[in-house]
Amino acid sequence: MIMWFAGLILLIVKLAVVLGFLLFLAAYLVWVERKFLARLQIRYGPNRAGRYGLLQPIADTVKMLTKEDTIPDGADKGLFCLAPAVVAMTAMLMFAVVPFGPELSVFGRKVPLVITDLNIGLLFVFALSSLGVYGVALGGWASNSKYSLLGGIRGAAQMISYELALGLSLVPIVMLARSFSVVDIVQAQERYPFILVQPVAFVIFMISAMAESKRIPFDLPEAENELVAGFHTEYSGIRFGLFFLGEYVHMQVLGALVAVLFLGGWRGPFLPPPVWLFIKIILVVLFMIWTRGTLPRLRYDQLMTLGWKMLIPLALLNIVVTGAVVLF
């Protein structure tokens, strides 16, 4: 029993550290994004709050916490309040299956450096990713604003469309690792990262991941110059903050998934495993920001064409080919 409580405390500490790091990273990701994007556009980016604007995330947090939280007339109050929480929570939950290092030995017991090693890890990710759609769709619908509604519908349609490509692109990975467990997939990349054998799947996954996280060039649900701010037009204060947090955690989780599924996860020479994972996540995220700084937004029909007419057939063919090659 004592061991149980000791384990519980250890678990809580571990989870709190992970969650804290996740949130801290999300907050600083905002700073990184603004800074990096600014340099891409020959600007400075935030440089007022603290040195190099390093206190900017804190300032933003304080502002969001103290801002008035308005609920528009005629909004569905319950759903309106629920939506941002759904988005933020699903994004954070997704990180639960990402391993950030090999097992560690504490008090003679092995502590795995993963929150939960579900044997259906990937399906868990898909499920939560689908759940996240609810946040967007409900938030858009509940606002009682036309812009929000349009943003919400667009978001829902876009996310379910790319969900398919995302799922199908990972089938070859599952075939290679013979497991849905993310831990197993990392283990399976002991010899070589899967990106080398599955470049097509990587490309499809990368594109779908960006679309899933509603980032430029796939930011149609919030396209500011046509829909004001899309599904979160009517949100302010911390509710807006939760949407924001959700988006950045989502980015990070997707970066982690790319790292784990294609780049060998925490594997790497010299440095401790979590640092390697961190570096890989940052690299993926930086690539996403770079994309944002480079590509213009797609038109909605282009978005749908890309998803349905290119990525899905390609992913299906990739499965067939991979199956044949692996069997052979």
Partner: peptide, 18 residues
Amino acid sequence: EGFATTFNHLFRRPVTEE
């Protein structure tokens, strides 16, 4: 080309006047 262009921008001096 697009990616290269933006990447090159990374090393340019910002034009912002503070």
